[in-house]
Simulated scan of single mutants.
Amino acid sequence: MAPLRSGAHGLSPVTLLCCVTLAVWLCCGAHTEASVLNLKRFIGCAVREFTFLARKPGCGGLHVTTDACWGRCETWEKPVLDPPFIESHQRVCTYNETRLETVQLPNCSADVDPSYTYPVAIRCDCGVCLTSTTECITSV
């Protein structure tokens, strides 16, 4: 078997083929990823683009697009012998790492600061619901 020779850029043909395949997937495959992924069946936690209306008294509203945590995490219960007779493991998709961004709201009254600060998700994970970062529902 003959050894593989390096191409013009010093890469073997196999390495070059892998690089070209990866480049095509990144350029073209990224546009079809959302259509391939069935979000109704997605289990996990991910950063996803989210738009909301930023408002506060004395100012006009502003539509803001940010990154937020989104997803469903696996939960389970296990029967135990002592009350309450169930050991619950309820995990939620929650913020693990964030940064803060500030925008200026329009049409604010002279006595109102137009600054509006909101979190931008950098990393999200399935975990215990922490009321310091997430609105947790404890009963229905």
Score class of each variant (00 low, 15 high):
residue 30 A to R: 10
residue 36 V to K: 09
residue 73 C to W: 05
residue 88 S to P: 00
residue 36 V to Q: 07
residue 69 C to N: 05
residue 33 E to G: 09
residue 45 C to W: 04
residue 34 A to K: 13
residue 64 V to R: 01
residue 84 P to E: 06
residue 102 T to F: 09
residue 118 Y to D: 07
residue 116 Y to E: 04
residue 87 E to S: 14
residue 98 T to W: 01
residue 95 Y to D: 01
residue 124 C to I: 07
residue 103 V to Y: 03
residue 112 V to A: 08
residue 90 Q to H: 13
residue 93 C to V: 04
residue 64 V to C: 01
residue 101 E to T: 00
residue 114 P to H: 08
residue 94 T to Y: 01
residue 60 G to C: 12
residue 121 A to I: 11
residue 25 W to L: 15
residue 137 I to C: 04
residue 111 D to N: 15
residue 32 T to F: 15
residue 61 G to F: 08
residue 56 K to S: 05
residue 96 N to E: 15
residue 36 V to S: 06
residue 111 D to M: 07
residue 131 T to M: 06
residue 43 I to Q: 10
residue 28 C to F: 13
residue 99 R to L: 14
residue 69 C to W: 06
residue 125 D to T: 15
residue 42 F to G: 04
residue 23 A to H: 03
residue 76 W to D: 07
residue 28 C to K: 10
residue 135 E to F: 10
residue 51 T to E: 03
residue 60 G to R: 11
residue 50 F to Q: 04
residue 108 C to M: 06
residue 49 E to H: 02
residue 134 T to Q: 06
residue 59 C to Y: 05
residue 116 Y to P: 04
residue 77 E to Q: 12
residue 137 I to P: 00
residue 116 Y to M: 11
residue 92 V to F: 04
residue 116 Y to F: 15
residue 49 E to F: 01
residue 132 S to A: 15
residue 59 C to L: 10
residue 83 P to L: 11
residue 50 F to A: 13
residue 96 N to K: 12
residue 117 T to S: 15
residue 42 F to A: 14
residue 107 N to S: 09
residue 113 D to T: 09
residue 66 T to I: 01
residue 35 S to E: 12
residue 54 A to I: 04
residue 37 L to V: 15
residue 109 S to Q: 13
residue 90 Q to E: 07
residue 53 L to P: 00
residue 128 V to M: 08
residue 24 V to I: 15
residue 120 V to S: 08
residue 76 W to M: 11
residue 70 W to I: 08
residue 78 K to V: 13
residue 68 A to D: 13
residue 50 F to W: 09
residue 34 A to N: 08
residue 61 G to K: 03
residue 134 T to R: 01
residue 55 R to S: 14
residue 62 L to G: 00
residue 40 K to F: 11
residue 129 C to I: 03
residue 88 S to R: 12
residue 78 K to T: 14
residue 81 L to D: 05
residue 40 K to Q: 15
residue 27 C to H: 10
residue 28 C to V: 13
residue 37 L to E: 10
residue 65 T to Y: 00
residue 60 G to D: 09
residue 44 G to P: 06
residue 130 L to V: 06
residue 79 P to H: 01
residue 126 C to A: 11
residue 84 P to F: 09
residue 124 C to H: 02
residue 54 A to V: 04
residue 67 D to H: 14
residue 79 P to S: 07
residue 120 V to L: 07
residue 23 A to P: 00
residue 128 V to F: 02
residue 55 R to D: 07
residue 29 G to I: 10
residue 94 T to R: 06
residue 90 Q to I: 12
residue 111 D to C: 07
residue 53 L to Q: 11
residue 37 L to H: 05
residue 129 C to Q: 05
residue 30 A to V: 13
residue 36 V to P: 00
residue 67 D to L: 15
residue 30 A to H: 07
residue 53 L to A: 12
residue 90 Q to S: 12
residue 46 A to C: 11
residue 37 L to D: 01
residue 76 W to Q: 06
residue 119 P to H: 07
residue 71 G to P: 02
residue 79 P to R: 10
residue 125 D to M: 14
residue 114 P to Y: 04
